[in-house]
């Protein structure tokens, strides 16, 4: 019950760091969607761009988290703010699942349905917004869900460069060799990941075309 007491005693800090954590995940997911969804749509239509774009996103994904934070540190405007840096790194990591799922979702729309729409005189943008995107939406949201779950975990590393978040507890706990402090960061992070997984999964199910 030591752990519980720790939570009660430090609840303001737990809440603050959880808030910071959510802010990192929220902004990076937002930016990753802003870039990844249009990019995924683009490569679904211009398939010759598909391979290079997906390969690039894949390569980013393979860079170890701490290394990526380290690489970005000397970049002028970015290096000034640890939070900016963390958001950028998390955005880069979130790109792959979002681009990939947008691409798969759009490519997975029944070609006969798209052709029927085109044959009826829908413009390309009407086809996109009224046919392709609605039919691909649940797959796209599924990519967002994966991205968020990954980001919640990765964001703990942001504390390494001083960007805050629940990783603070984890790093501090490791330094202090105190499991309670580590768990104070790890448990809320795990709960956040599960909630995001469940919540976005629920939205995804509502949007799935019959």
């Amino acid at each position: 019950m030591n752990l519980l007491r720790f939570f009660v005693q430090n609840h303001t800090q737990v809440l603050d760091l959880t808030g910071e954590h959510l802010r990192l995940v929220g902004w990076s997911t937002f930016f990753a969607m802003l870039i990844g969804i249009p990019l995924g749509i683009l490569i679904a239509h211009r398939t010759q761009l598909g391979r290079p774009v997906l390969t690039a996103a894949n390569i980013i994904q393979t860079i170890p988290g701490i290394a990526l934070f380290g690489f970005l540190l000397p970049v002028p405007w970015l290096g000034e703010s640890a939070e900016r840096l963390a958001i950028l790194a998390l955005t880069l990591y979130a790109l792959l699942p979002i681009i990939r799922n947008t691409y798969d979702g759009i490519r997975g729309v029944d070609a006969a349905v798209v052709e029927a729409g085109r044959g009826m005189g829908l413009t390309e943008s009407q086809l996109l917004f009224q046919v392709e995107l609605p039919l691909a939406l649940s797959v796209i949201i599924s990519g967002v869900r994966i991205a968020v779950v990954i980001s919640v975990g990765l964001a703990t590393i942001a504390a390494f460069i001083g960007a805050g978040g629940l990783g603070e507890f984890i790093f501090r706990g490791v330094a202090m060799v105190d499991n309670r402090v580590i768990l104070a960061g790890a448990i809320p992070a795990a709960i956040l990941a599960l909630l995001a997984d469940f919540g976005i999964g629920w939205i995804e199910k509502q949007l799935r075309p019959r």
Binding site: A112, G119, G121
Partner: peptide, 20 residues
Amino acid sequence: VIQLRRGIGYVIQEAGLFPH
């Protein structure tokens, strides 16, 4: 082309209806 197509009805096998 858009005006052309809107003036032509198009029916395909299995109807190609929009499932959503």
